[in-house]
């Protein structure tokens, strides 16, 4: 790949290396993140543990002892250097214009009412109607940049700023699992019941964390999602179907 110069590599202590592709939230940068992980996972070096994507970078975790046993040499190279050299080889396999296949996943959401107690507030704050908030929120496609904070929790990009709103001043002690919320310019889905300050506009009947499945989450970094408004009847139906 031609602009390797823009790629920055740094170690995270003696057990991981971070490969940085840029510094802003951008689908093109993220495509490289996903591409690098695919390349490594297809042909991992001995001692590779796992790769974790974020908005702009990939953290590669390795097992020091395994790499040492397999590759330590007489040049007194550090294991960190040896792993960096492997990563550089992977980076050469990156292609700039590779067309990445993104899965698109529909997330059914019941908006407003007891499922989305803050929908009105989001509407008032942005001087639009509740219906418009729902329309804007459910008309966009969102990119899953990363999963973190909690198992299955997607960090999404692509929300329209016309429905942005600051977090609540006082967080709620318990937000039900499946709640769809807005915090600043971000939208997200809570996979677990947790305390939180997001403005809750709806709820999905889908479970995001599936500990008995492989992979254990419904969404993965690189997926695209759409929120699809559903009625209470459809919501109950989904709940029954997935239990």
């Amino acid at each position: 790949m031609s602009n390797l110069r823009k790629i920055n590599m740094r170690s995270l202590g003696d057990s991981a290396i971070v490969i940085e592709f840029g510094d802003d939230i951008n689908p093109l940068i993220h495509d490289k993140v996903i591409q690098l992980i695919k390349i490594i996972e297809q042909d991992p070096f001995e001692g590779f543990i796992e790769a974790v994507p974020s908005y702009t970078n990939v953290t590669i975790y390795y097992d020091f002892v395994t790499v040492y046993k397999a590759f330590s040499n007489k040049n007194n190279q550090t294991i960190s250097k040896i792993v960096s050299a492997f990563i550089e080889n992977y980076l050469h396999k990156l292609t700039i214009d590779a067309k990445l296949e993104h899965r698109t996943i529909d997330i059914p959401v019941i908006y407003g009412g007891k499922f989305g107690p803050d929908l009105e507030e989001v509407a008032t704050h942005n001087a639009i109607s509740s219906e418009e908030v729902v329309k804007i929120h459910s008309s966009k496609e969102y990119l899953v940049y990363m999963i973190g904070f909690a198992p299955g929790f997607p960090f999404l990009g692509g929300m329209d700023e016309a429905i942005a709103i600051p977090r609540k001043n006082t967080p709620r002690p318990a937000i039900p699992s499946g709640s769809v919320g807005i915090a600043g310019k971000q939208t997200g889905i809570y996979p677990f019941e947790t305390p939180g300050g997001w403005q809750i506009i709806g709820q999905t009947p889908l479970e995001l964390f599936l500990p008995n499945m492989s992979p254990p989450t419904r969404l993965q970094s690189g997926d695209k999602i759409r929120f699809v408004p559903i009625t209470q009847e459809e919501y109950e139906h989904y709940k029954e179907e997935h239990q």
């Binding site: 995270l12 057990s15 975790y61 960090f155």
Partner: peptide, 10 residues
């Protein structure tokens, strides 16, 4: 700063 991977001892 954007969220990114961390590890034991960070």
């Amino acid at each position: 700063l954007l969220s990114e991977g961390v590890t034991f001892g960070t």
